[in-house]
Amino acid sequence: MDLYFKALGMHIKTSCEYKLSSIINFIAQFFVMFSDYFIIIALFSKFGNIKGFTLYEILLCYSIIQLGYSINDVFFKGLDDFSDIIINGMFDRLLVRPRSLLIQILASKVSLVRTSRIIQCIGIMIYSIINLDLELNLIKVIVLLLMIIGSVVIFFSILLLMSGLSFFTVQGLEIKSLFTYGGKQIAQYPIAIFKKYIVLFFTFVIPYGLVNYYPYLYFLGRNDNVFYAFAPLGTLIFLGISLVVFKLSSNKYVSTGS
C-alpha cells in the first residue's frame, strides 16, 4: 500500500501541473451528475412514489450506489483503463518490477478531478437522511457503512473481473459498461421495483441487491432480519471470485513479441 499512496501523491502533483484544466474538470464533474438527480426529482413530482419508495428513499439509495461507483472511478481508475495498459505495452514494465501486479495497476492511474462526485454523493446522502426522519442507532449507522463499502466492493470486483478477461481479449470490453454503467443505472433504484428475474440476477450473479436492497430494507426499518442487515458482506464472495479470476488470467497472460 505504501506504493499506492506514494503514487497517489504523484498523481496529485501531476494534476497541479495543469491547474486550470483540473479546476474546470473538477467543477464540470460536479454538475455532470446533477442532471441525474433532477430527473429523479421530476419523476417523483409526477408520481409521488415508486412501489412504495419515496423520493428521499430513492435518493439515498441512488447516492450510495453512486458513491461506490465514484470512489472506484477516482481511486481505482487504473483498473478501469487496464486494457490500455496492455495495449500500449506498459504491462511489460509492471512485470519487471518486484511488486504485485494489482497494486501497480491501481497506482498507475487516479482520476482526482472526479473527487467532486464523491463530495456530491456524500452531500446528497446526508440531505436525504435528514429528510427521511429515521431513528438512527449504532447498528443502522454500521449497516449504512456496510452498504457503502459493499457498493465500493461490487464495482471494484466487476472492474477486476473485466480486467482479468481483457488479458485474453486485449481490446477493452464493452460488456464492462453493461455491468458497470448499466448495472449502476439499475442499481440506483432498490431492485424490488423491477421484475422478478432481474431481482434474482442482481442478487446472485452480480450482487447489487446485497447492497442496495436487503440491507436497505433493514436500514429503513421495513425488515428486522439480521441477515438482511449484514448482506453487504456477501459481496466479499464476489470479490474473492474476481481476485481468483484475475490472478489466474494474469498468470496465463503472454505478452506479444514486439
Binding site: 506514494k6 503514487a7 504523484m10 502533483k13 501531476t14 501541473e17 495543469y18 518486484p98 511488486r99
Partner: peptide
C-alpha cells in the same frame, strides 16, 4: 508531467 526525480522517489518505494 512531473520531474524525473519524482519517478526516482517512486522507484525507491517500489
Amino acid at each position: 508531467d512531473i520531474p524525473a526525480e519524482d519517478t526516482f522517489d517512486l522507484l525507491k518505494v517500489i
